[in-house]
Amino acid sequence: MVGGSQLENANPLIYRRAGERQVTAQEEDEDAPDRIDDREIFDLIRCINDPEHPLTLEELNVVEEIRVKVSDEESTVSVEFTPTIPHCSMATLIGLSIKVKLLRSLPERFKVDVHITPGTHASEHAVNKQLADKERVAAALENSHLLEVVNQCLSGRSSA
């Protein structure tokens, strides 16, 4: 953090983290298959770091479990995220981080859709369009500066 620089939102609201998912007897059972469910997808993205704060997307309420929808049978995932302020300049970057994390973590059969919670950001459509465009996502990741920031959001204190 640079000495004098000011953050866009220095004192944001903080939300409680969901605890670690409890391991059930069924999950320990060799033979019983576990379907990929909403919580599992949420666990993949909740620990992503915010590009600005030393806080996770979950703590800032940018992602919530109820805004995650997955269908294991149809191989589709849909994630809505909510920027902390309507003019947040980091929205695209956050969306990109979520998208990259899901692409790296889910089986290839899944179709991943990441978009802004309707009505929560000034340039909602532009951002959604960028995130939905495969080629633009791929091109963004060719940019080593962008990739660096995305990787920083994805590494760090994973599940502390």
């Binding site: 790296r104 973590s105 500066h145 990739l147 660096e148 990787n151 920083q152 994805l154 590494s155």
Partner: peptide, 12 residues
Amino acid sequence: RCQWFLLGSPGS
């Protein structure tokens, strides 16, 4: 897998 993605990648 995510750790292997980060290997040698900027920002890791």
